[in-house]
């Protein structure tokens, strides 16, 4: 399964990069979201993935023993997911503003540094 996830990360990154290189701002945004997802899985994978044993301490024990999923990448990813929502929201609003101002979705139209956007 790890190998499948490795390939999946590659696909997510490739798609993300391809979208970022488009001229459309909406595609740019979606591309960034995909890159974020790919990175999340990357971090997840690096913590050694384990099936069916979440990092939760059982009823009558005080310490996690045996095999369990690594909690550290999970905490990292959880943070990343929430932050990426903030980022997406902000980017969408920026996009919205730019569109309202320029009446265009074309990134090339942004190539007017003197204008007050």
């Amino acid at each position: 399964m790890e190998l499948v996830l490795v390939v999946l990360i590659g696909i997510l990154y490739a798609t993300g990069i391809f979208l970022i290189l488009r001229r459309s701002m909406v595609k740019l945004l979606l591309g960034i979201a995909l890159l974020g997802n790919g990175t999340n899985i990357l971090i997840f994978l690096l913590g050694n993935i384990v099936k069916g044993s979440p990092p939760i301490i059982g009823e009558n024990v005080n310490i996690l023993r045996e095999i369990y999923a690594d909690p550290v990448p999970q905490a990292l990813i959880l943070t990343a997911i929430v932050i990426s929502f903030g980022l997406t929201a902000f980017a969408i609003v920026l996009l919205h503003r730019v569109y309202a101002f320029l009446d265009s979705d074309d990134l090339d139209d942004l190539n007017t540094p003197d204008e007050d956007i």
Binding site: V6, I9, G10, Y13, A14, I17, F18, L42, L45, L46
Partner: peptide, 20 residues
């Protein structure tokens, strides 16, 4: 762009394997 993007994807996969 496809070539660049696929290239980057492959590189990221290789790096992941390397880290693993």
């Amino acid at each position: 762009d496809s070539i660049i993007a696929i290239g980057f994807g492959v590189i990221i996969s290789l790096i992941t394997l390397k880290v693993m």
